[in-house]
């Protein structure tokens, strides 16, 4: 299989999973899709190397998270302003549960959010989350524990807040 063929096959087979992960991290569908395209473009730049990795998808996921975090940091001020006025209205499509979860995730610190998404959405074991994010396993466990508690609180609060709107 040529390089182009193997890349195309890899891209088609994994892009949806990566999109879900980045969407959960960013809470913004359009942004997530662009981050996914950017991450695969970078993978193609180094495809001769990346394709030899045991898990190229992990590499692309890490790149996508970096791109997303970088953009997220740049946009954080704007995002904070948006949040004062409620969630952005131009995100059609996702189910109510997904919107609620993405909205709750967006209120967590990025490290907790990342741990939750990689563990509960991508399905990585704690040890793999630790390796992929570069922190000790104990830190991942702590982030998961705190993140789950915070998520539960945020999601429980959602219906009550909706009544006040």
């Amino acid at each position: 299989m040529s390089g182009e063929e193997s890349f195309d096959s890899f891209y088609r087979g994994s892009r949806q999973r990566l999109y879900q992960c980045v969407y959960a991290l960013t809470g913004n569908a359009a942004e997530a899709q662009d981050v996914v395209h950017e991450a695969y473009a970078r993978a193609w730049q180094r495809w001769s190397t990346v394709s030899g990795y045991a898990d190229p998808e992990a590499w692309v996921r890490t790149v996508a998270r970096r791109v997303a975090v970088s953009r997220w940091r740049r946009a954080r001020s704007a995002w904070t302003a948006h949040r004062r006025h409620g969630p952005p209205p131009d995100v059609p499509g996702p189910s109510p549960d997904s919107v609620a979860l993405a909205g709750a995730l967006a209120q967590l610190p990025m490290p907790q959010r990342t741990a939750l998404v990689l563990h509960h959405l991508v399905g990585l074991p704690v040890a793999e989350v630790a390796r992929e994010t570069g922190v000790p396993e104990g830190t991942v466990k702590a982030r998961l524990s705190r993140g789950r508690r915070a998520l539960a609180t945020l999601l429980e609060a959602t219906p009550a807040e909706a009544h006040h709107v």
């Binding site: 999109y19 569908a29 997530a32 997904s98 979860l101 959405l121």
Partner: peptide, 10 residues
């Protein structure tokens, strides 16, 4: 979290 698995790009 399971519901996110079904989400499609815009």
């Amino acid at each position: 979290f399971e519901s996110l698995h079904g989400e499609r790009a815009p």
